[in-house]
Structure formats: structure tokens, C-alpha cells
């Protein structure tokens, strides 16, 4: 039986996770309208992954970003941090007013997350490829201290090009760090175009399996599949094998004119287009 089938998730939870994914998309648009440039499409492809982790899977305490036993979150594709900040505010880690000044001079929130400035950011990112190593370090340290938290590491698919990812993959399997759970946002695009044209990464599942990992694949926009799968991985008893979930996603998901359009990796919506984008997102909310 697949792990997903063992942990059915109730309808109410599913609706909540879907609603929060839409909230993440809307907040992303609002914040980028302040900065006037940002990674909409990268944020949209992982909106369901983030909502599932932060509202359905991770063990966190409201208002306590430094709780030592909390599950950790590493944002390998840190350029989508704009999607994380509203979630941190929602969890009481960060004042909501700080969001309103996103990227302005002296504000702690930049395009990439900074652990020294933003409570709730477990690790600074921005340089692609470091996050898995950091997440592994936390799990090894937790083990030494008798703490059993999980490190969730969200990697981009373009990030798979980085050598350090594979050093860390080898290392996590070697150190039997079963509390490391990687999610790959397989949205198929990086900055210059399609990942598989810029630098091919397939067969991705076989690569991770060959490195000793427990490999799963899922539709990264279907919270009813994501949530039970991630919960089952998080709840394993004394796991020794690290796990990776290849989440198949659509870059720009939710706004049709952005979906899989490479120009939208980094961009800015005019007020007119912003209204259109919000309309699409709202109508998706009504449909569900």
C-alpha cells in the first residue's frame, strides 16, 4: 500500500489547504506590486506545497518561531520567498504590517529569505544548492540533542543542476538521516527556459533512488494527494532512509497567461494585468 493511501485527509482540511494556497497566490501578487518586480510564477508553482506543509503537515507552534522541537523548513528555491512571508505572518512569527513594506529600504523582507532578519526563516537562502545540506545539518544536530523534528527541504528542479545537492543527497543517505524530507517543485522551467533544455535532469527519480532515497511522485497542486503523502513521511517511526517527493507542478499555476510562459520567471504585472490575474485566482476559488 502506498503511504498516501494510509492517511486519508478529511474534506475540511483539503478545503482549508486549497483556500490557503489561493491566499498565498493573492498575497504574492500584492507584495510584488509593492516591489514592482518578483518571482510570481515560481511562487505559484509551489503554493499548494507550501500550504500543505505549513497548514497541514509541519509541527509548529503559533507565535513561537524558535520552538526547538519545531519542524524545519529550508527554501532551496529561495527566490519564491515572497510566498513564504504571508505564511510566517499567519503563524504569528512576523508582524503583518511588515508585509506592507515588502522590499522597501530597511525592511527585513527581500526577494530571498534571511534568517537573521525574519523570524520563522530557518535558514537564509538565495544561493541555489545549499538548502539540503543545511537541512541535513539540522537533523544531525537534532539527533545529537535527542530531538526528533523533520527538516522539509523544498528544492527547485533547476536546482538539481547544482553539485552540492548531490553531495548532500549522498551524505543524508550515508548518515541515515530519515528525518530529511525533500520536495522537488518540478515545474519544468528555470530562468533561461525549460530545465530539460538548459541542463537535463532526468531520470530524476532514478537518480535519487540510486543515491539511496525513498522516492515518491505526486501532483504538486493536488493537496488531497500531497497532504496524506507528506504526513505519512513526516510520521514515520525512527526513519533511517531520507525521502524525496517529486511534485509535478505548473510554473505560474493559477494565472493562465503565466502558466509555463518563460517570460514570467521574473516579472511585474501592470495594474491592469494584476486585476486580471486576481480575477483568475478568485474564480478558481469559487470553482473549488
Amino acid at each position: 500500500m502506498s503511504p498516501a493511501a494510509t492517511n486519508a485527509v478529511d474534506r475540511e482540511t483539503i478545503e482549508r489547504l486549497e483556500e490557503r494556497a489561493l491566499f498565498i497566490r493573492k498575497e504574492t501578487i500584492r507584495l510584488i506590486s509593492i516591489a514592482k518586480v518578483g518571482h510570481y510564477a515560481s511562487a505559484f508553482s509551489c503554493a499548494e506545497i507550501l500550504s500543505t506543509l505549513f497548514y497541514g503537515v509541519m509541527d509548529l507552534k503559533q507565535g513561537e518561531p524558535d520552538w526547538p522541537d519545531r519542524d524545519r523548513f529550508m527554501f532551496g528555491k529561495g527566490h519564491a520567498a515572497v510566498a513564504l512571508y504571508p505564511i510566517l505572518a499567519d503563524h504569528g512569527f512576523l508582524d503583518r504590517e511588515v508585509l506592507d513594506e515588502y522590499t522597501k529600504l530597511g525592511n527585513p523582507l527581500g526577494d530571498h529569505p534571511d534568517r537573521t532578519r525574519v523570524p520563522g526563516v530557518d535558514f537564509s537562502s538565495g544561493s541555489i544548492g545549499h538548502a539540503l545540506s543545511a537541512g541535513l545539518g539540522m537533523v544531525l544536530a537534532g539527533r545529537l540533542d535527542g530531538r526528533d523534528f523533520n527538516s522539509f527541504v523544498l528544492l527547485g528542479d533547476g536546482e538539481q543542476n547544482e553539485g552540492q545537492v548531490w553531495e548532500a543527497a549522498m551524505s543524508a543517505a550515508h548518515h541515515r538521516a530519515g528525518r530529511v524530507i525533500v520536495i522537488i517543485d518540478r515545474n519544468r522551467y528555470c530562468l533561461d527556459g525549460e530545465v530539460d533544455e538548459v541542463m537535463g535532469i532526468e531520470p530524476l527519480d532514478e537518480k535519487w533512488r540510486a543515491f539511496g532515497w525513498d522516492v515518491h511522485e505526486v501532483d504538486g497542486h493536488d493537496v488531497s494527494a500531497l497532504c496524506p503523502l507528506l504526513r505519512s513521511l513526516a510520521d514515520r517511526e525512527a526513519p533511517e532512509q531520507p525521502a524525496v517527493v517529486i511534485a509535478h507542478t505548473v510554473k505560474g499555476k493559477g494565472v493562465p497567461f503565466m502558466e509555463s510562459e518563460i517570460g514570467w520567471h521574473l516579472g511585474y504585472l501592470s495594474p491592469e494585468d494584476e486585476a486580471k490575474a486576481l480575477e483568475y485566482i478568485e474564480s478558481a476559488a469559487q470553482r473549488s
Binding site: S133, L136, G137, Q164, A168, H175
Partner: peptide, 28 residues
């Protein structure tokens, strides 16, 4: 032995792992 980690010939991973460890209060 439990406080020693041989990270193999993966120096970049080793430095980032150490940083991750340090976030929990250890001094690597």
C-alpha cells in the same frame, strides 16, 4: 565518536551542514 562527522570529500556540503548544525545551538 558521536560528535565527530566524517563528511567525505564533499567540502561544500560539509560547510553548509555545519551551518545547519549551528542553527540549533551547536558549535561546529
Amino acid at each position: 565518536p558521536e560528535r565527530f562527522f566524517n563528511m567525505g570529500i564533499s567540502e561544500q556540503n560539509m560547510v553548509s551542514v555545519a551551518a545547519g548544525m549551528a542553527t540549533t545551538g551547536l558549535t561546529p
